[in-house]
Write a protein that binds this DNA or RNA. Structure first.
Lengths: 294, 294
DNA sequence: ACTATATCATAAGTAAATCTAATGAAGGCT
DNA sequence: AGCCTTCATTAGATTTACTTATGATATAGT
């Protein structure tokens, strides 16, 4: 592989080592004449003789020694490069770099990695949890092959693959009055102490609209910018919230939270996978994408 | 000058720096198409894309970054080489490396350097004083451009340029009986305490033959392998000797030695300059050789 | 010293590569 | 959407690189 770059250097090095043009030519699969012409051309370009032809076996001139050193260094450096490149190629084929928002990454990645590992054992999945805008950035700047986001924004040079729409339910602490009910209708939420998302988060705007359209007024007791914190606050009894049910899985099992279905069919969180439009994904990444959305 | 080697690396580096194939092509005096084809060929050989074409300005891929690093290192190394080469070329044109036996070097080089310096001010003369066999070695191995020796041996791949034949005279200490005489004839030497050369030195064999042919028996009191030591021994009054007159110059002026002409026209020390037959001497060296033998 | 042998240099013709000019495709900006 | 710039592609021309054949030269062996 290192053979395809710096072939001139390799030839020179071989001539020096073999002390013979004809043998070096053989080693490089060319004729003796070609080797001679190569070296002569080189000498002409450098404007100085590199070999001492007056003696046999062929000896180096002072300038030749300098050039031989150059070739040695260059070839050594090229080998390092080739090794690094091979390693990179290999890992590029095998590793899938994923950037995900916290809520999806925390609740889904463990499962996905495990299940995908079974059908594609060679792959290595590297997950990075980021704020939503950083997920877009990571994908656009080729820091990640795939990005997991909610409420996808369509952008030029970004392909958005819709994954699913998550049902939103009421998240309450175990001692709340709703617990035990089959379902909650929007009106029931009126006046409830509510843990909301920060205003710049899209899901907050969606919920605000839902409350407005349902003519419900809630009492926001806290604003947080991520699901994880909201779940904590709810569990501590500060209020209730509305969250994608799937993101509560762990807390529901631990009985730290209770999820009560909410009659609001329009309230769903769309989740999607993004990747750069132009970039051709590695086989592993393509398989993974197929596997996830299947 | 660095431009004639590793042109591919330079092009790549320029493309990276300019973030543009067309501008890099201009910088390298080729068409945009040629630059594109170059990079594409490179990518094909490496089996991986180096540039990210899906965005403008052109960005590097991970592999491209690796290759750019390689190019940077190679070009830097090549620059060092070029600088070293230029320096070498320059000095090769200016410096004359001389290997000389002690007797010639000590007595003549100061004068030659000074006089030659006037007619060829650019030259730098490097003199190395060595035993005779080392002088041959130095010249044959291209450690020296010119070699100064006595009693030249003709060898294959060595050009011998006769310089002069030095008159040999009797070297005596100031209190010796010969001092004041116009001339000494061989017979006068009979029975004299004599400081001789070691037996392997050519000059010794020449003198032995001279004594034999003159039917003279001398009394060797000391054997030394170089003229310098013999002069010392004579000056200290251990005996007399026969030496090339010119090599005694300094001691004669200091009146530490006295030189008495010897009637022996055949007794002359030939001195010659040698150089490698094939090697073309630098202009400085050629001028110097001409100057010396003129 | 002379010849034999191996190796390098050179020449001429051919194959291969590289280059240019022209044109097509695509990104990014207004 | 349309314009402008830049890159990709193609085909043909030019240059370069290679091969084979032959000549020159250094070294070794007689």
């Amino acid at each position: 592989m290192a053979e395809v770059i710096f072939a001139d250097c390799k030839l020179f090095r071989d001539v020096v080592h073999a002390k013979s043009l004809s043998r070096a030519a053989q080693l490089n699969g060319i004729s003796q004449s070609a080797a001679t012409q190569h070296i002569q051309d080189l000498e002409k370009r450098l404007g100085i003789e590199l070999f001492d032809r007056s003696t046999r076996p062929l000896g180096l001139t002072t300038a030749g020694k300098l050039y031989a050193d150059l070739c040695r260094d260059v070839l050594r450096r090229a080998e390092d490069f080739t090794a690094a490149l091979e390693e990179m190629k290999d890992s590029a084929e095998r590793v899938i770099r994923i950037a995900s928002i916290y809520s999806i990454g925390l609740s889904e990645m463990g499962r996905l990695r495990e299940e995908f590992g079974k059908i594609f054992p060679g792959a290595a999945i590297h997950v990075q949890l980021l704020r939503p805008d950083k997920v877009y950035e990571a994908v656009l700047e080729d820091q990640a092959d795939l990005g997991f986001i909610s409420y996808p924004e369509h952008r030029r040079d970004l392909t958005v693959v819709p994954w699913r729409e998550e049902r939103m339910t009421v998240a309450a602490y175990p001692s709340h009055a709703f617990v035990g009910r089959e379902m909650v209708v929007p009106r029931d939420l009126h006046g409830e102490a509510f843990i909301a998302f920060d205003e710049e988060v899209i899901i907050r705007r969606e919920l605000d609209r839902f409350f407005r359209e349902s003519d419900v007024e809630i009492s926001i007791v806290m604003q947080l910018d991520n699901i994880q914190s909201i779940k904590e606050a709810v569990a501590l009894g500060s209020g209730i919230s509305i969250l994608p049910e799937r993101t509560m899985q762990a807390e529901l099992e631990q009985r730290r939270l209770v999820s009560i279905p909410l009659h609001a069919p329009e309230l769903r969180r769309p989740v999607a996978i993004i990747h750069r439009k132009k970039k051709k994904l590695s086989r592993a990444a393509r398989e993974f994408l197929q596997f996830v959305i299947a």
